[in-house]
């Protein structure tokens, strides 16, 4: 008797689980709020301000999706996640999407049953050294002590790179970037390694940032992408095409300022399709015609989001680099809106 009850309960759980995973879009619409997983605090990418309002590069993608799906960029509930909790929060249904500077890798996609929708930031691991060290290239770091965060892909990449170039190094393990900064500034290590965006963000906090240089070598590929659960293709498409819509908008010159103007109709049919003045692309996603227009209205196109949070005018001051549009020497390439 007890076994029967248990089995029935287990079956019910399974049923609920599959039901909930089948229609994330319907769940979000019914709830009226998008549950978005973000970082507990990463400069430029996502952090709450003194009033508890979240801002940042990844955060703006959550808001764009909320604007496209629910019509209101403020209808997002942000769930702070750590490196350990992020994918579980997604798999368990606690969040609908994850925008937390997560690297798209083979194992994560296939072993953890996740779908990485589209790269929104191309990062890569680099090195920072004090200018006084007189080093101009990572290949001159033979025998150096290097501060590296434990339990990350960073550690592995570092080992691979030094092995590949037949060089030796002494790793100094650190827990997070705040501790790394203390160690590095105290001279405990010759070089500090992490993702290039992280290096720039860290250097911006130094009292004398100009005494330190970021070496030109990028030793790994870190494509960061928003993530959804595997098995709900419609929802994955929605998040993916929201990202593409923001990238496409930049390519086509649509900004939050000229959006209303453009939406009245232009001579460019692709632009008209994107903004819903021609055709009904939104209908195919289960959304309405104006979905992309609302997503762009939230915080502007990809370039505007980049500049506002991590671009040259911010303290982090990242150059577009790989994240420029494909026709400007970068890798940002939205699939065509046909």
């Amino acid at each position: 008797m007890k076994t029967t009850v248990f089995l029935a309960a287990a079956a019910a759980v399974g049923l609920f689980a599959s039901m909930a995973q089948a229609g994330t879009l319907d769940d979000v619409k019914a709830r009226g709020v998008l549950n978005c997983g973000v970082n507990t605090g990463l400069v430029g990418f996502g952090a709450p301000d003194a009033n508890g309002n979240w801002t940042g590069f990844d955060v703006d993608f959550c808001r764009a999706v909320a604007a496209a799906v629910l019509g209101d960029p403020t209808k997002v509930k942000f769930t702070p996640t750590t490196g350990e909790t992020r994918f579980t929060a997604l798999a368990s249904g606690e969040i609908d999407m994850l925008a937390r500077n997560s690297t798209w890798t083979y194992k994560r996609e296939n072993d953890l049953k996740l779908t990485f929708v589209a790269v929104n930031y191309y990062d890569g691991q680099g090195f920072m050294v004090p200018k006084s060290l007189g080093v101009n290239s990572a290949k001159e770091l033979d025998g150096a002590t290097i501060c590296v965060q434990t339990g990350t892909t960073t550690e592995l990449n570092l080992a691979d790179y030094f092995k590949q170039h037949n060089m030796k190094y002494t790793p100094i393990s650190i827990k997070d970037s705040a501790e790394g900064k203390q160690q590095f500034l105290a001279g405990a290590c010759d070089a500090y390694t992490t993702d290039a965006s992280g290096l720039a963000a860290l250097r911006a906090t130094f009292e004398k940032p100009h005494d330190y240089v970021i070496l030109p070598e990028i030793i790994s590929k870190e494509p960061l992408a928003p993530v959804v659960r595997k098995g709900d293709d419609q929802w994955a498409s929605i998040v993916r095409w929201v990202v593409y819509a923001l990238i496409e908008a930049e390519e086509l010159g649509v900004t939050s300022k000229n959006l209303d103007e453009m939406a009245k109709g232009t001579s460019n049919p692709e632009l008209n399709r994107l903004l819903g003045t021609e055709d009904n692309l939104g209908g195919m996603l289960g959304l309405d015609k104006d979905w992309a227009k609302r997503a762009i209205a939230a915080h502007g196109n990809y370039g505007e989001i980049f500049e506002a949070n991590i671009g040259a005018s911010t303290p982090i001051g990242l150059a577009r680099g790989l994240n420029a549009q494909w026709n400007k020497g970068g890798l940002m390439y939205a699939m065509p809106f046909h």
Partner: peptide, 12 residues
């Protein structure tokens, strides 16, 4: 503290 450091104004 992480959340506070996550803001550009208090990072560091």
């Amino acid at each position: 503290t992480d959340a506070v450091r996550g803001n550009a104004s208090w990072n560091g």
